[in-house]
Amino acid sequence: AKPPKTVTVKVEVTNADGETQTRTVTLTNLPKDLKPGDTVTLPETGQTARIVEITP
């Protein structure tokens, strides 16, 4: 079996106070056609994050 493909992405997350924070997260099994501006759900927090940058 192939190991899951991990991708490092820079995302913007809005916290409970309405502040936008930029975080770098490593995600696995992202859709192939994901692009900056799309939103993903962070598995560890369940927060919705907007992708700023994808590092191949």
Rank of each mutant, 00 (worst) to 15 (best):
V7F: 06
P36T: 08
V7Y: 06
V11L: 09
R23S: 10
T45G: 07
T39H: 11
L27V: 11
T26S: 11
V25T: 03
L30N: 10
L34T: 08
A49Q: 00
I54M: 07
V11Y: 10
G18W: 02
T20E: 03
G18M: 03
V40F: 13
L34Q: 02
T28Y: 03
D17R: 12
T39L: 13
P4A: 15
Q47R: 05
R50N: 04
T48P: 11
L34W: 11
P4D: 13
K32L: 14
P36C: 06
N15V: 06
P3W: 11
P43L: 07
T22C: 08
P31C: 14
A49W: 01
V9Y: 03
A16K: 11
G18S: 03
T41Q: 08
T14C: 07
D33I: 07
D33K: 05
T14W: 05
L27F: 04
I54G: 02
T28H: 07
T24F: 06
E19I: 12
K5F: 15
G46Q: 07
Q47A: 07
E44K: 07
R50D: 01
T6L: 12
R23F: 14
V7G: 04
P36F: 05
D38T: 04
E19K: 14
R23H: 11
V52N: 01
I54H: 02
T20G: 03
D33Y: 08
T45C: 05
N15T: 13
I54P: 01
V52W: 00
L27P: 02
T24P: 01
Q47C: 06
V40P: 00
T45D: 08
V52Y: 00
N29T: 10
Q47N: 04
V7E: 03
T8C: 09
K5I: 15
P43T: 08
Q21W: 05
P36M: 07
N29S: 08
P3N: 09
L42G: 01
P31A: 12
I51A: 01
P43W: 05
I51P: 00
D17F: 12
T24D: 10
T24W: 11
G37W: 02
K35T: 05
N15Y: 09
T8S: 10
T39Y: 14
A16W: 08
I54L: 07
R50V: 14
E12R: 07
T45H: 04
G46E: 04
N29P: 13
K5E: 14
T48E: 10
D38K: 02
L42T: 01
K5T: 15
V52D: 01
K10Y: 05
V9N: 00
L27Q: 04
D17V: 09
T26I: 13
T14D: 06
I51Y: 01
G18I: 01
T22A: 06
V13W: 15
Q21E: 15
P43G: 07
R23V: 15
V13D: 01
D17N: 13
T6G: 13
V40N: 00
V7I: 10
D17I: 08
Q47V: 09
K2P: 13
T24N: 07
T41E: 08
K2S: 15
Q47K: 05
V52P: 00
Q47P: 01
T28A: 12
E53Q: 09
I51C: 01
V40L: 09
T24L: 11
A1I: 12
V25G: 01
V13R: 01
A1S: 13
D38V: 04
A16Y: 07
T14Y: 06
K35M: 10
V52Q: 03
V52E: 01
V9Q: 00
D38G: 04
I51E: 00
K32E: 15
N29W: 06
L42N: 03
V40S: 00
K2Y: 14
E19G: 10
V13K: 01
K2N: 14
N29G: 13
P56G: 12
R23K: 13
Q47D: 08
L27T: 04
L34I: 12
G18F: 02
V40A: 01
N29F: 04
A16P: 10
T41F: 11
V9A: 08
N29D: 15
L30W: 15
T41W: 13
D38C: 04
V40Y: 05
P3I: 08
V11G: 00
R23P: 01
D17M: 13
T20I: 13
P56V: 13
E19C: 14
P43F: 04
T22D: 03
R50A: 03
V13L: 11
T48R: 09
L27D: 07
E12D: 05
V52G: 00
T28C: 10
T28S: 11
L30T: 11
I54E: 02
L30C: 15
T20F: 07
T41Y: 12
N15F: 09
T45A: 04
T55Q: 12
V25D: 03
E44R: 06
T24Q: 04
G18T: 01
T8P: 02
G18V: 01
A1W: 04
P36Q: 06
T26W: 02
T55I: 15
K35W: 05
D33P: 06
P31M: 13
D33H: 09
K5S: 13
K5R: 14
T6K: 09
D38A: 05
T24I: 11
D38N: 03
E53L: 04
T8G: 03
L42V: 05
T45N: 08
A1G: 11
V7S: 06
E12W: 03
V7R: 06
T22I: 15
T48Y: 02
L42Q: 01
T55R: 11
A1N: 12
T22K: 05
V52A: 03
V52C: 03
V40C: 04
K32F: 05
L34K: 04
N15C: 09
T28W: 01
K32G: 15
T39D: 05
N15R: 06
V52T: 05
T24K: 05
T14G: 03
P4H: 12
E12F: 03
T14I: 14
P43M: 07
K32I: 15
T55G: 12
V7L: 09
G18N: 04
D33V: 07
E44A: 09
